[in-house]
Design a protein around this nucleic acid. Structure first.
Length: 568
DNA sequence: AAGTCCGTAA
DNA sequence: CAGGGTACGGACTT
């Protein structure tokens, strides 16, 4: 199997898995584990995975059985599976699918919750939270519950460890003719004629087929893999009025542009609902912000009504990992509407992944970044952590700073400027982005590197000028602040140098890497450097930040800058 | 009366 | 933890 005859993993009975990085079976094991376990730590020698509720349900939702998971585990394990764990995995995986939600007779105001055995319902009957929702035992294997509690019920059951298969169905919403735009000279109007890639078609198919009735779920695709097109294809397959929610104004404009470019929808059929425009049209694109905006602190949300303004047949949640809590609550009330979540990184620093799972839907499709890389849709990236020692002065400031300030001091290590200059020199002619978190640091870097700086204060006009110059090759180096995290119109580069970042934000790291993923001419290769002060708290945060990417199979090489120039 | 600029909140 | 985007209201212009 792996040459050494011994598996690459050590499996512990607390459901954690240690994966030996130097093992010949490492790559294969990492790929296999990604299906049902979450990476929690990735120090150099051993990666730690954990089998969580969510990871199991995602596996189950994707059609993996306990049998298959256990088979993979025993194959990977160096010394068997601990007694008890096997049974536990079997039991926990089997929890997915033991409860089903169906619509009541004649589409009435009651739903039916069905279980595969009476004991389970006995157990649920003891839960006060469920009684409050009006759950009422009507038969040994059946409970009834008011239909309007559908979302809260699912959320609560997920929390208790019993996710529900939702077969209660969806309303179709107001029908709307959404054809693909016909390619010139071609009469055919199928997904193929608009150039849907295989994986995009597969994602659409899975969305339609998951959980029996189909029609709600989350599609996870890397940056630049064409999530918008998946959304459009789902829209085309359902042919109904649709509400699209997304993270910012730029993205709203992009959705609208794509809708008009790819489909035959009239301009009047597509509306923008944002701070500036309040159009409610058959297809409406809105920001999350406007939904959650309150007129006054603690007051009511001003625009949540948008969910009910038309008879939507589909709601698309773009960047679903950013979904604000109040929108979760509103989503609980609209469970009869089909929902599609799109994201590159289904991780939230607030740990509400479970709510995404229960209220939007299970993960129905995911394509690992590395697979996409192999197929050439995104660039291959070398990730390099560069450890930059702190000079004497800064080391002193670091030692006398409070715990929280230490991170700030280490992040602002001025020796990073020289390290960045060296990296840039090592990539002559490449388009380079220097990305950081602190304005003073970035100002100094821009000055010492002789490069233009873009921050939130930079006017849109000025940005566009610099972006254009960068794209044309007139400028080869740009220093950017957090504007880079979400700015969809930032140009692509082949080298990114991260000089500082937010406390352990996994998504931020992923977004930043995304900046250099667009396929490159020639070798199709890009470089991601992250500069970290040596012997400092910054290293711990950096480790956490890159968990997501490690999970996706990116390896960080570590380089240490020699403290030359100490005499300066 | 309607459009544009700017500071502020959360 | 700092920084950035958004929505909005008030000031000012047309």
């Amino acid at each position: 199997m792996n040459g050494s005859g011994k598996g690459a993993c050590f499996i512990r009975k607390d459901r954690t898995i240690l994966l030996e990085c130097g093992h010949p079976g490492f790559e294969a094991a990492r790929t296999a584990l990604a299906d049902f376990a979450e990476l929690v730590k990735s120090p150099p020698a051993y990666h730690t995975y954990r089998i969580t509720h969510l990871s199991r349900w995602n596996a189950a939702a994707a059609g993996k059985t306990a049998q298959e998971i256990l088979a993979v585990l025993s194959l990977l394990s160096c010394c068997g599976i601990p007694a008890g764990l096997e049974e536990e995995v079997r039991q926990l995986v089997s929890r997915y699918g033991r409860l089903e939600l169906h619509s009541g007779a004649a589409g009435g105001s009651l739903m039916v919750l069905r279980a595969d055995n009476p004991g389970l319902l006995d157990e649920l009957a003891e839960q006060a939270a469920l009684q409050e929702l009006g759950l009422n035992r009507t038969a040994p294997l059946e409970c009834r519950c008011p239909a309007e509690q559908r979302g809260l019920l699912k959320q609560e059951l997920t929390r208790l460890g019993f996710p529900v298969l939702d077969y209660a169905g969806y309303r179709d919403g107001q029908a709307l003719n959404v054809p693909w735009k016909k390619a010139a000279g071609s009469g055919a109007v199928s997904g193929e004629s608009v150039g849907l890639r295989d994986y995009q078609e597969e994602a659409v198919r899975r969305f339609g087929g998951i959980g029996g009735s189909g029609g709600s779920g989350v599609v996870v695709l890397p940056c630049g893999a064409g999530k918008t097109l998946v959304g459009l294809a789902v829209l085309e397959s359902l042919q109904c009025e649709t509400l699209i929610l997304t993270s910012n104004a730029t993205s709203v404009a992009q959705w609208k542009a794509e809708l008009l470019k790819r489909t035959g929808l009239d301009e009047e059929a597509v509306g923008e609902y944002s701070g500036v425009k309040r159009e409610v049209r058959p297809i409406t694109v809105a920001t999350y912000q406007i939904l959650t905006h309150r007129r006054s602190k603690g007051g009511p949300f001003g625009h949540m009504n948008l969910f009910n303004e038309r008879n939507w047949g589909l709601i698309i949640y773009d960047e679903v990992h950013l979904l604000p809590a109040p929108v979760f609550r509103a989503t609980a009330d609209i469970q009869a509407t089909r929902r599609l979540g799109l994201t590159a990184t289904l991780v939230r620093e607030d740990g509400r992944e479970d709510d995404v799972f229960s209220l939007i839907g299970p993960k129905c499709y995911e394509l690992p970044w590395k697979v996409l890389e192999k197929q050439g849709w995104i660039a291959a990236v070398d990730c390099i952590e560069v450890v930059v020692p702190m000079g004497t002065d800064i080391r002193h400031r670091y030692m006398y700073a409070g715990a929280k300030e230490q991170f700030r001091v280490a992040a602002g290590n001025p020796a990073k400027a020289e390290a960045a200059a060296k990296i840039i020199a090592a990539h002559p002619g490449a388009a380079v982005l220097v990305i950081g978190q602190y304005l003073d640091q970035l100002e100094q870097l821009a000055a010492s590197l002789g490069a233009p700086l873009i921050t939130g204060k930079t006017s849109q006009q000025e940005r566009n000028g610099l972006y254009a110059a960068f794209n044309e090759g007139a400028i080869r180096l740009l220093v950017v602040s957090k504007v880079a995290n979400f700015a969809v119109n930032l140009p692509d580069a082949s080298v990114a140098i991260e000089v500082s970042g937010a406390y352990g934000s996994r998504q931020e790291e992923a977004q930043r890497l995304g900046r250099i993923l667009r396929p490159k001419p020639g070798e199709n290769k890009a470089y991601f450097y992250t500069l970290v002060s040596g012997d400092s708290r910054e290293q711990d945060f950096a480790l956490r930040r890159r968990l997501f990417l490690t999970e996706q199979g990116y390896d960080y090489a570590v380089q240490t800058v020699q403290p030359e120039g100490v005499s300066l």
